[in-house]
Simulated assay, not measured.
Amino acid sequence: MALSQIKSLRGILIPKEVGQILDRRAFSAGASKKKGKGGGAADAPKGSTLSKEVKSTTTVGANILKDGTDPKVLADSEYPDWLWHLLDKRPALSELKRKSAETLPYEDLKRFVKLDNRARIKDNNSVKATN
């Protein structure tokens, strides 16, 4: 705010040289250097150097070990069955409340208890926060 007031008064009270000094920002020496025209082309993403065959047979970027290699993609039959159910949609708390607790499978009953406890804790916390 003070700088904007100084800028508005620059023509009246402050000589031109002082106004130029106030206008400059203090950056580090490396950051103040500007790139020449065409600098955006150097920042463009580079094309992949991997062949299509390597991309389709390995999981590129999945290696977490320093001296390891990327894992190979296996056939679907070689993966465990539970892996294919990880992204299945599970019922929400409102759907589980509508069903009878006696008819729910064990996994859904476990999920119902967990979600119900979580909702009850949230309600208690909101009541305590308002008091």
Rank of each mutant, 00 (worst) to 15 (best):
E78V: 02
S100D: 15
I64T: 07
T103S: 14
D43C: 13
I14S: 04
G61M: 08
L104N: 04
E107W: 03
A42W: 09
A62Y: 10
D88K: 11
E78W: 03
K33W: 02
G47F: 05
I12Y: 08
A26S: 10
K99H: 02
A75I: 01
S56T: 07
K55V: 06
K37G: 13
D70Q: 05
I14A: 02
K37A: 14
V18C: 03
G40V: 03
G38Q: 06
L93K: 12
S8Q: 14
K16T: 13
L104I: 07
G39I: 05
D88W: 03
V73H: 02
K33H: 03
W84K: 15
T58Q: 09
P105Q: 02
G36R: 10
E95F: 03
K35T: 05
N63Y: 04
R98G: 04
L83F: 11
A29I: 12
V18K: 06
E78F: 02
A42P: 01
K16M: 07
S77H: 03
A62N: 06
V54P: 00
S77N: 09
W84E: 08
G39K: 05
E107A: 14
A42S: 15
L9I: 04
D76F: 02
S51A: 06
T49R: 10
I14C: 07
D88L: 04
Y106M: 06
L65R: 15
A31H: 01
K16Y: 09
L9D: 07
S94A: 13
T49V: 10
A75H: 09
T69D: 12
T49Y: 01
I64K: 12
G11L: 07
P15H: 10
S77K: 14
L74E: 01
S51H: 05
R10L: 05
L50F: 12
W84S: 15
T58P: 00
A42Y: 08
K99G: 00
L74A: 06
K89V: 09
E107D: 15
T103P: 01
P105I: 00
P45K: 15
T69Y: 12
T49F: 01
T59Y: 10
I21A: 13
D88E: 14
R24T: 10
V18N: 04
K46Y: 01
L93G: 05
T58K: 11
W82D: 11
A62R: 09
K97G: 01
S56Q: 11
Q20K: 15
L83T: 05
S100M: 01
P71V: 03
F27L: 14
S77I: 11
A101D: 10
D81L: 06
L9P: 00
D70K: 06
G47Q: 14
G30I: 12
S51V: 05
L83N: 04
S28H: 09
T57A: 07
K35F: 09
E95H: 03
P80Y: 08
